[in-house]
């Protein structure tokens, strides 16, 4: 399985997920891909999914640079990448470094 990748602005380097049309920082509309294999799990919840079976979802802050101009209106630490929603596998807890994989369109995260 190849590493999870996210678009980064070809002009300013701002990394985003999910993919969008134009860069929210500089307005450029060309993208490159950067590897985003890992991140930090920030928070987790667990409850019934669409089919009634339990799902574990969490917010993961990707370990990719945000780009030279940094995040927008964001009070989180600078130098960290975009926050993403992922399905959390195994016993990963907030604060853990997790590895990300895109499996059939589903972004999954598990402890390294």
């Amino acid at each position: 399985m190849s590493d999870f990748q996210v678009p980064a602005c070809a002009n300013c380097g701002h990394a985003i997920w999910p993919p969008r049309l134009a860069c929210p920082v500089c307005g450029a509309a060309e993208w490159t891909e950067v590897p985003a294999p890992t991140g930090t799990l920030l928070d987790v919840t667990e409850g019934p999914g669409y089919d009634g079976t339990p799902v574990r979802l969490g917010t993961v802050r990707l370990a990719v640079p945000y780009g030279a101009q940094g995040a927008i209106r964001n009070s989180w630490p600078e130098g960290e990448g975009p926050p993403v929603i992922a399905g959390i596998d195994g016993d990963a807890r907030p604060g853990d470094t997790v590895r990300l994989e895109l499996v059939d369109g589903a972004l999954r995260a598990a402890r390294e």
């Binding site: 928070d43 919840t45 669409y50 799902v55 929603i85 399905g87 059939d104 369109g105 972004l107």
Partner: peptide, 16 residues
């Protein structure tokens, strides 16, 4: 991006 996770709707996002 969310439906493939068997996502639980906005409840899950607002729980986080």
């Amino acid at each position: 991006h969310l439906a493939p996770l068997n996502y639980g709707g906005p409840n899950a996002l607002f729980a986080l």
